Amino acid sequence: MASIEKLHPTDVLRLFPRLLQVYPDVAFTIPCIPPVGAWEHNHLSSKFGWRLHPIQGRFKHHEGIDIAGPHQLVRSTASGVVYKAGYERGLGLYVIIDHGNSYQTIYGHLALLHCKAKQKVRIGEPLGVLGQTGQATGLHLHYAVRKAGRYLDPGAYLTVGLSLINQYVSTIP
Rank of each mutant, 00 (worst) to 15 (best):
residue 167 Q to I: 03
residue 67 I to L: 15
residue 124 G to E: 13
residue 60 K to T: 14
residue 170 S to L: 13
residue 133 T to P: 04
residue 63 E to H: 06
residue 54 P to S: 07
residue 157 Y to R: 00
residue 93 L to V: 08
residue 55 I to V: 15
residue 32 C to K: 00
residue 121 V to R: 03
residue 4 I to L: 12
residue 81 V to S: 10
residue 19 L to P: 05
residue 112 L to A: 12
residue 103 Y to E: 11
residue 101 N to D: 14
residue 78 A to M: 07
residue 137 T to H: 04
residue 82 V to T: 10
residue 113 L to Q: 06
residue 53 H to A: 13
residue 3 S to L: 06
residue 95 V to C: 09
residue 11 D to L: 09
residue 20 L to K: 15
residue 164 L to V: 06
residue 77 T to F: 02
residue 110 L to N: 10
residue 38 A to R: 14
residue 146 R to N: 10
residue 4 I to Q: 01
residue 25 D to Y: 12
residue 94 Y to N: 05
residue 110 L to Y: 05
residue 24 P to C: 10
residue 38 A to P: 11
residue 113 L to K: 02
residue 119 Q to G: 02
residue 9 P to R: 03
residue 97 I to S: 04
residue 35 P to A: 14
residue 84 K to T: 13
residue 75 R to D: 10
residue 154 P to T: 02
residue 91 L to G: 11
residue 54 P to D: 09
residue 76 S to D: 06
residue 12 V to A: 01
residue 56 Q to M: 12
residue 151 Y to L: 04
residue 44 L to P: 05
residue 155 G to D: 01
residue 77 T to R: 00
residue 13 L to Q: 04
residue 168 Y to R: 10
residue 167 Q to Y: 09
residue 157 Y to M: 02
residue 154 P to H: 03
residue 126 P to N: 12
residue 102 S to D: 15
residue 55 I to C: 08
residue 158 L to N: 00
residue 155 G to Y: 03
residue 29 T to Q: 13
residue 144 A to P: 01
residue 135 Q to C: 00
residue 63 E to P: 03
residue 150 R to I: 08
residue 36 V to Y: 00
residue 74 V to R: 01
residue 10 T to V: 10
residue 49 G to T: 13
residue 108 G to S: 11
residue 122 R to T: 12
residue 83 Y to E: 14
residue 137 T to I: 11
residue 158 L to A: 00
residue 95 V to F: 08
residue 6 K to T: 13
residue 107 Y to D: 03
residue 139 L to V: 00
residue 75 R to H: 13
residue 86 G to D: 15
residue 85 A to K: 09
residue 90 G to Y: 13
residue 84 K to E: 15
residue 16 F to I: 09
residue 16 F to W: 09
